[in-house]
Structure formats: structure tokens, C-alpha cells
Design a protein around this nucleic acid. Structure first.
Lengths: 111, 111
DNA sequence: TTTATAGTGAACCACATGGTTCAGCAAGAG
DNA sequence: CTCTTGCTGAACCATGTGGTTCACTATAAA
């Protein structure tokens, strides 16, 4: 499924504290690579890689403006991750709700 | 922050389609390593590694029963990921809500 | 036109990941 | 006790990740 790859990239992009902070920073408005790199004391090249990962996941969009690159928050990708978690949560809660029934009825099938 | 490491591990664990399917499978009840491995045609060793990643993230708990290992869904870790996404979403939506003000008031500060 | 600045790409590094095979070990069955 | 089964650990492999430095391009400024 292509949808699986989208989830892969989205969750992987979120699995890094630096990138999560970048997202929060961009929540306050667009920024250049240099402006993003500065608070982390990171090289421009390093920051560009992070931005590239976020861009690949659709969480950020960028655009070259003059000799600078303007990075902005992407739009809908996070909703994919969110809805998967919600789906899984529903599944999990349903299991908890049925725990007593599970133990009384399915004891022999508990594998 | 330790909390950041928890988020790192949780999102990283979710960033793999196989592991997401394992979680869904475990939503239907506990399973052994072999039972988890079978539908993927994967070696036991490979599956154990996946389970280990999920366990490290707190998404799954396991327990040795006889010569088999019983894997169950973990409890609260997913809520961490969920609440981070919600936090970020609020931030993002607030930015969208303020877009007009942003364009009219902060045009000169658009960097 | 010269020079400073912002980003880019290639090469490199150490380490993690996702998988395998093979050799064991421990528990249950006969 | 012996045999089978389920899991485990070590070793290995190819690829990805998070970071660097260095050389380069392209734009903006003087």
C-alpha cells in the first residue's frame, strides 16, 4: 500500500526530537534553513537534511526565494498519523472494554 | 528530556508497517512470537526484534510462559504520541486561524 | 566587478535497522 | 531419557540515519 509508506515516512519524521522542535518552530511562521539551524548550533547541511525528511513526509513545504530557502509547515499529513493512532486506539479500547468477557468466555482460546 | 526519548521510541516503533500490523494483531488478543511471525513469513528471530522494539517503546509487554513468549498490547504509551500530535495540531490550527491577521499585520516580518 | 552570504552536493563517519542463518537451550511429549 | 518445538543469541549483511567538513554555486551588496 502507498498509504503505508506515507505512514512510515510520517512517523519516522516525527521520531526525532530535533525535527519535532523544527515543526513547532515553524508553527510560529516560516523560516530559512539558517534560521532553523541556528538555535541547534547545527550546520546548514545537517539542517537541510532534517528539512528534507520533513518535506518527504509532507509535513513541511519549502520554496527557494533568492539565495534563501523558505520553509513552511505542510498541511494534511499529520492527519494521517493521527487517524491511524485513533484507529488503533479504538481497537485497543474495545479490547479493554471486553476484558471481562474475554476472560470468562475465551479462557480456552487465550493464545 | 526523558519524555523526548519516549516520543522518539514510540514514533520510531510506529514507523514500520510490520510493527503497526503486529499491534493490530495483538488488539485481537495475546500471541506468541511464532504466531506473530507466521502471517509475515518471517523468521522467529526477525519477529522477536520487532517485538523488542515495540516493547522498548512500551507499546507491548511480554512474558515468558513455558517455552513460549506471550505478547500483549502495552497500555499508555500511545497516549504520549497522541498528545504530542494533538499539541502540535493545536499549534498548527492556531496558525491557520490567524492567517489573515498574519498576512495583514506581519507582512514585514514574514521570514 | 568584487566580495560576502545562504544554501547545496559529495564524501565520509559511526551507529542503528531490518532482515537472515546457524547453533544452542529449555520445556513439553512420548 | 530422548526427541521435538519455541525461542534466543551471536554473527553477519545491506541499507539508512544523523551528523560532519570541504568545495562549489548563486544571489545580494558594496
Amino acid at each position: 500500500m502507498v498509504q503505508q509508506e506515507v505512514l512510515d515516512r510520517t512517523f519516522a519524521a516525527l521520531a526525532d526530537a530535533t525535527r519535532r522542535q523544527i515543526l513547532i518552530r515553524l508553527g510560529q511562521g516560516p523560516a530559512s534553513i539558517g534560521e532553523l539551524a541556528e538555535p541547534f548550533g547545527m550546520s546548514l547541511t545537517g539542517m537541510k537534511k532534517h528539512v528534507h525528511v520533513l518535506e518527504n513526509a509532507g509535513l513541511v513545504t519549502t520554496e527557494k526565494v533568492g539565495r534563501s530557502r523558505r520553509c513552511r509547515l505542510g498541511t494534511e499529513r499529520l492527519e494521517d498519523a493521527m487517524s491511524w493512532i485513533r484507529f488503533y486506539q479504538r481497537l485497543w479500547e474495545r479490547r479493554l472494554d471486553g476484558l471481562d468477557a474475554y476472560f470468562t468466555l475465551n479462557k480456552e482460546d487465550d493464545r
